[in-house]
Design a protein around this nucleic acid. Structure first.
Lengths: 210, 210, 210, 210
DNA sequence: GATGAATGAGTTTTCATTCAT
DNA sequence: TATGAATGAAAACTCATTCAT
């Protein structure tokens, strides 16, 4: 499939992956210009189409690469033996920060997927992405220790609520980070602030003794 | 600016607004075809460009129209004298449902805004939309009665948390509604379920006596 | 189908038809450049694609136009009540000369058809052209008066033989005429010479008394 | 000119000639892909352009090779001491069948020549091919025994007529053979049928006593 | 000598915008 | 005012040819 591309040295592969991620994250599939990709990757027009038969194949490769990277990284970063929801949410925040650090455009790329038109892309990207999403959420939030929650509340609703809050928080700050210089002190304050939310959740949703 | 357009009779204006909303909500700015808009609005190609100098000006008009409609409607639907956060959130849910009912494409149009490319659109749509967003959030959540919240928690964090949860809930279900037939019983169960979340928040974040 | 094109004034239609015929007769379908066609027809690039959705549709139109023109003209020029093969062959030669006069590239276009690749053209041009060919040959040579032929020969073979000879003669001279100035005296000598062949056939294949 | 190529061992030369013949006979000059040629010949892209400076030079070489082969073979297959036109025509048919047998693509290659565009090929292929054609026709039909023909006809016209008929016959059947399985019985019936034409010509064009 | 990855000019097609009527 | 035919710049993709190894 992508044999020609995979025979390239890793540095060039990465240049092309990053250029594609950048361009595909800035515009949707159809608007994303292969001209921009080759300029950004500093390769010739012909080269791109030598490595990937056409734009669709390139997009598909990038999509699969992102899926593989994200699912691999989640298993590396998140400790599934840790059953406490709040600790896990902190791990997930760190996971997102690490992605943002390594591939600044990848999260934006993922967020755009829901707005793509499957007709043009040529495979059912929405259902594929939904499927992956459900699988990942299943892994991340399936085996949560529910014994820590208060007895007088519906635990399922509480878990959803905490997850949505956590995502609300990270969405806002991850968006900001695209345009700001990210330094360590910023990250530290980000995590500090997140911890305060976790404390809130513990106080409100967990049993008193926790 | 849009003098030519505003001199048209209201019926024709509406035809053009609805056609634009439909086409701009189905595709992003650049893919949205002025051909489709004129066909949908049943006017000639030249007419569109007579009323609006170019596609950008048209988009800007539609954007402003949406902003005005949404901010007007929020003041009509949401009772700013009601200071209880949870009751207000319920009103906001009803507000969103009413928009979805009247302009099925408007919410989709709004959701697409974050993925538009400001370079193409020609004005800084993202910051404009962010600004509006902040203003609306200001109005909606500024004068919340904080006395109902537990004394042992940070109330600002609690409010954010509840808002994010509420949005998490509505995002999921509003997306679904694009593809499902919406009937009354569906709406009722949606609100019922939302009430259960509100009960949860009351139990966890409010003082015991409430 | 070609509504937009058919609404043009006849002069412009003809310019486009002639330009297409010229370019499609000089190169095969894939090599024939739409750029050359628009330059030759003196229209803009966009115009061609406004009249015809794409190159295939244009080719198909030209193909059908040629078929219609040739079959119409054959009925106008050839008298099907005249059952004598030799007289009919003379009419057919005149028919070919008239086509060459009106559409100098049309015959070349037709000859190229057998070398086209149906995959690219998108409809089975070879079988379509074969079918038309058989139909036309059927009309032209079906009701020949066989009573004039000598009794000691196979009449079917004789007819084929005369037709092939006649085509051999016209092929050679029609090809030449593409590159020479055609004037009346040339045409007259061409027909004179052809008459000498017809006399030969009469002497050799017909009964003595004819 | 083709020094580099001619230094190759014969087996490799043949692989390249056959591959080129195949590809150039399937498509016209410009569509014929050098990629396909190197794949078919199982050599590298660079090699082809090492042996032949460019595609034009390669085509010219193949063209000359075909000319040389066909003119050599005609002298081997056709007995120029046999002065009877009809016998010679039978030899020519056998000659064509033998070419078709040895190089199935060569005749197709030759037939395509008339439809090539000299501008692209870079030498005046049409006039070159016309010249060769005339030379070969000269050799084949120059020293025909005219004494066998009837006295009351123009012998030159009669000879042309017989040649055109013969070519009409073989053109039709050689085309067919591209798509049909060729077996011996088919060839025998082909020749039988041809003999019936030759008998016709003898009856009609030759003096009674022959 | 031989390889095959890389190049970039050239091709078809789209679509916002203009302008003669 | 309103029309819709006409424009042409831009985009994806191809392929003969080159050149470092």
């Amino acid at each position: 499939m992508y044999t020609k591309f995979l025979q390239l040295n890793v540095e060039k592969q990465n240049r092309i992956i990053n250029a594609s991620l950048k361009v595909f994250s800035e515009s949707n599939y159809k608007d994303a210009s292969t001209d921009d990709i080759v300029k950004e990757a500093d390769i010739s027009k012909g080269a791109l189409f030598y490595y990937f038969k056409n734009k669709k194949i390139l997009y598909e490769f990038i999509f699969d690469y992102v899926v593989k990277y994200l699912t691999n990284e989640v298993l590396n970063t998140v400790d599934l033996n840790e059953l406490d929801l709040l600790i896990r949410l902190k791990q997930i925040l760190l996971y997102k920060l690490s992605i943002l650090n390594k591939y600044p455009d990848m999260i934006q790329f993922v967020l755009r997927i829901n707005h793509e038109n499957s007709d043009e892309i040529g495979f059912d990207i929405l259902s594929k992405s939904k499927e992956i999403n459900e699988k990942v959420y299943g892994i991340l939030f399936n085996n949560i220790d529910t014994s820590k929650f208060r007895d007088d509340i519906n635990i399922e609703l509480a878990i959803n609520s905490i997850i949505w809050s956590s995502e609300g928080y990270s969405n806002i700050h991850l968006k900001e980070m695209k345009y700001k210089k990210i330094d360590n002190s910023y990250i530290i304050s980000l995590i500090d602030q997140f911890n305060r939310y976790l404390d809130l959740f513990k106080t409100c949703f967990y049993k008193g003794e926790n």
